[in-house]
């Protein structure tokens, strides 16, 4: 089979409405920034991103036998971000995930926000962040950074998928988390090997392409921080959650995500009230989310103001 669905494509029905909508909101905020950022780039960017999206899609078909009938293949988020820059990489991955969901039902529609976040946005941010951290260093170090970023990007995707499933009341955390992380620790190795070999190949044949994308993201230092923070989250959260799932479970129950025995999707709209503001736990989460969104919007706004002022000074 050339086209093999990855265990990261969540179908509809597996996430609660609340989780689906929250991740749609987060994804849309990040994507609208990505669209604004890429619109100001070179006009050649449009066909480039389009063909690159088809490239990622096709590259996911290239597999190599690992052992026992399983095969390694590519998710591609880190690779796309390293080749094209973080924002363009995110858009390219979004297009890939969207077409896989829309055309092939590989991943649902209502849950597509979560799928885009897990497989497109997280992977691009982490992959690019690590690669950027090795900017100006030797090629070996760059390849190492790209490989580490690729592995962590897959692990982050797996971690978030597990958390979303658990928060939706679809899976038990103490089982789904080690299972997801375990499987993807291995899948991630395939990701690392292909990503590193592909970048090494391009270093050998067309180094100018990689240098070009580096210079086009001069002010991308922030991505190192983003990538590092996200990975830190993965690294810290995974063992904690695996070792003490009850602890995390308690947190989520206190926040109101996990209503044991209750019917999350039903509860959400059953009272003919605005779902988020009825229950105190939900309103806490809503407030937290709105806070995050406001801060994110502020940061983006300030960053844009700064860059506008920057260009007008020149």
């Amino acid at each position: 089979m050339l086209y093999s669905p990855s265990p990261l494509h969540i179908p509809d029905g597996f996430l609660s409405l609340a989780i689906s909508l929250i991740f749609w909101a987060i994804t849309l905020v990040i994507l609208s920034t990505a669209v604004k950022r890429t619109e100001t780039l070179d006009e050649k960017q449009v066909p480039l991103m389009g063909v690159m999206a088809a490239f990622i899609f096709a590259a996911q078909m290239i597999n190599f036998p690992v052992a026992g009938g399983t095969s390694g293949h590519l998710l591609g988020g880190a690779l796309a971000a390293i080749m094209l820059g973080p924002w363009a990489g995110m858009l390219v991955m979004t297009a890939v995930v969207a077409v896989q969901g829309l055309l092939f039902q590989d991943g649902g529609l209502l849950v597509m926000g979560a799928n885009i976040f897990n497989m497109g946005l997280l992977t691009a941010a982490i992959g690019f962040g690590f690669y950027k951290a090795a900017e100006g260093r030797q090629r070996k170090l760059k390849l190492f950074a790209a490989g580490l970023g690729a592995w962590l990007s897959v692990m982050a995707g797996a971690l978030f998928t597990a958390l979303q499933l658990w928060l939706s009341g679809t899976a038990r955390l103490d089982i789904v988390l080690p299972a997801m992380l375990g499987v993807h620790a291995v899948i991630g190795i395939g990701e690392v090997l292909i990503t590193v070999a592909a970048i090494a190949f391009i270093f050998k044949t067309r180094p100018d392409l990689l240098e070009e994308s580096e210079s086009s993201a001069q002010n991308g230092r922030g991505w190192i921080v983003v990538g590092a923070l996200l990975s830190l989250g993965v690294v810290l959260l995974s063992p904690f959650a695996s070792a003490d799932p009850d602890g995390l479970e308690r947190v989520a129950t206190d926040l109101g995500f996990l209503e044991q025995g209750a019917n999350a999707p039903y509860k959400l709209l059953s009272d003919y009230a605005l779902p988020f503001f009825r229950d105190s736990a939900f309103s806490t989460i809503a407030a937290g989310l709105i806070g995050i969104l406001v801060i994110a919007a502020l940061v983006i706004f300030l960053a844009r103001r700064r860059s506008i002022r920057h260009t007008s000074h020149n």
Partner: peptide, 8 residues
């Protein structure tokens, strides 16, 4: 496989 991806 990586070379193939690079070539592609």
């Amino acid at each position: 496989a990586g070379n193939m991806v690079g070539q592609l």
